[in-house]
Design a protein around this nucleic acid. Sequence first.
DNA 1: AATGCCATGTGAAATGGTGCACAAGCGCCT
DNA 2: AGGCGCTTGTGCACCATTTCACATGGCATT
Lengths: 226, 226
Amino acid sequence: MADAAGPRNDEAIPDATVARLPIYLRGLVELSDDGVGTVSSVVLASLAGVNAANVRKDMSYLHADGTRGVGYDVDHLIGEISLVLGGGVPSPVVIVGVGNLGRALSRYDGFVAGGFPVAGLVDADPAVVGRRVAGNVVRSVEDLGALVAETGCTVGIVATPASAAQAAVDSLVASGVTSILNFAPTVVTVPERVDLRQVDLATELQILGYHQHHRAVEARSGRATG
Amino acid sequence: MADAAGPRNDEAIPDATVARLPIYLRGLVELSDDGVGTVSSVVLASLAGVNAANVRKDMSYLHADGTRGVGYDVDHLIGEISLVLGGGVPSPVVIVGVGNLGRALSRYDGFVAGGFPVAGLVDADPAVVGRRVAGNVVRSVEDLGALVAETGCTVGIVATPASAAQAAVDSLVASGVTSILNFAPTVVTVPERVDLRQVDLATELQILGYHQHHRAVEARSGRATG
DNA sequence: AATGCCATGTGAAATGGTGCACAAGCGCCT
DNA sequence: AGGCGCTTGTGCACCATTTCACATGGCATT
């Protein structure tokens, strides 16, 4: 019953809204650092680069408690969004694959700031195992289960080559990790209970390439049509 | 009129479809390497992790020329998708910001393979300028305009700290770059004619964090409800 | 040449998300 | 105490996307 006094909106927050919450959070923290106490949906919208009505609708899924005529309390919103995005408790992550990308990710400040400290690194290459990277000793991928158990990691980052990605994912799943961020440029599959997100660097450029090419073709045909 | 004999579907390909084309392309290249000549929408769908009807609808925006009862010609599809995604011509890219992430990106094989060779690196830090990274000498951000003009880059990657991102974007735009991929964790604005995509590493983890937390809360309340 | 099998291509319904427009409500100022 | 201006919260319509279901049509086999 004491528990039931908590959030009522745990029911469901649309994916599109969840994807925007971290953006809001960044803007709000900045405002808070500047000593700003309240913010309107219009201002927050411009900070996040979205529509103001969209902000208000997003906030309606949280316990935003905005006051009409005034706006939202910045610190309160920070608290609510932080709570929704992981309960306010830091989640240590383990990175599989210590190549170029893995090393860069292990040193990426934003992870720590976002509540995701790097708790360990593993790699399949014996030449890399044992080396110190960004304050962590690289361990063998065979130790993954032990590492996850020791550190209580529930989030894994895959930064292996594409050919090793599915095996890395399988190892993470077997170790009990329930959220995986995959940077390898390949489609991987996970059990339904595991949450997977894909970040595909080359794909992003190719999408840009489409629009670029499309613009060029259109401009040319526009000229030719005259 | 001779021009009109070309693609008729230049009109518009939905964004959601464009975002899937690189995924299809990867799977198709793999099939081609394995000597597979034709592919059905069902197989391609499983390779890309999407619905088969979705594949067929996507293909209908291209000159897929699938044959009923057989499927699509793999090499033909590769050609069509490559054409749509940038005209088949490689687009050199320039990377702004040679920190951890910038270095990793400059060495990332996938860019070259995807038709986006790194043509140059720039940084604002004089201590970094002049150093050699991944076969490129880092140049000053002040040389950006010249570098873009020399190499004909039309795509820029921003890998600076958040505080320098907007300035980096502005410089790229001023240099004539028309497509920008921003890795800095901040919202940046560009003129309407410039295409911008945002890749936010920490945000991706935070989104995973929501689902993780949500699962935990649900499991707890599920138990409590009993 | 005819028939059966199989996969494409597509109309239409369902879904999810966005943005407008406006009613409701809070605080400040008089 | 009352009224005014400002901002939230939300019903509704629009748009994009996904998915189903099925008609269409080519290929192989007989």
